[in-house]
Amino acid sequence: MLRNFLIALVLASFGFIFLNLYNSYEPKTELTGIAAHYAENGASEVGAANLVTAVVVSYRSFDTLGEITILFLTAAIISFFLKLSNEDENKVIIHKGTSEILKTASQLLIPLIFLFGVYVFINGHLTPGGGFQGGAIIASGVVLAIMANPNMTINHTVIVWVESLSGVTVVIIGVLGIILGGGFLDSTLDGYGLGEFGTVFSAGTIPVIYSLVGLKVGAEISNILNKYQKSQKES
């Protein structure tokens, strides 16, 4: 009884704070401050047509580096946890066959899903999309392949190498930005200028960085889902 009353008190105080915030909110009518700078000079300094991509990869690239680190840490901790909790790994696991519809449909859909994922992260600077969305789509395709064929094992070495090489290459491009460009992870390097605005080979190093980020995120999420799938015990 006391517990319910205290919960209601906490929720009522939150509601009071939010009501005050909502009543005193004036919607903006002009872009001010840093957003005005990004809107005016984004196309000429960075060369990307998608301004959100320009902000994520070029102007605030440190935050993206931090996010990649957090995802890597999450994948590592989940592998650690779900590996030690397999108490009987010597048991032979025989999987029942999956249904016919799943097997046939997955053979048709998986190449299309991979193609769509790669398209989304290669064209991240022209249309809505980018590395994180493309990586999530690729991971969905991998999960469909695992579910349709439970005896298939994903080669662990391939995933580890793809993930590590992508991460190291992003940092190397960033350090090249300090030597040859304007700062860490700058999009224009000395010998690799901005291309023509609006084509695939434009915006300097942004497509390269975002493609590597897409591969890394796809490999990490596939690893997490593979660990979850392998920890199911069937007989």
Binding site: K28, I34, A35, Y38, A39, L51, V52, V55, V56, R60
Partner: peptide
Amino acid sequence: IVDPVPQA
């Protein structure tokens, strides 16, 4: 355009 910073 709308503000691109919160979306990022």
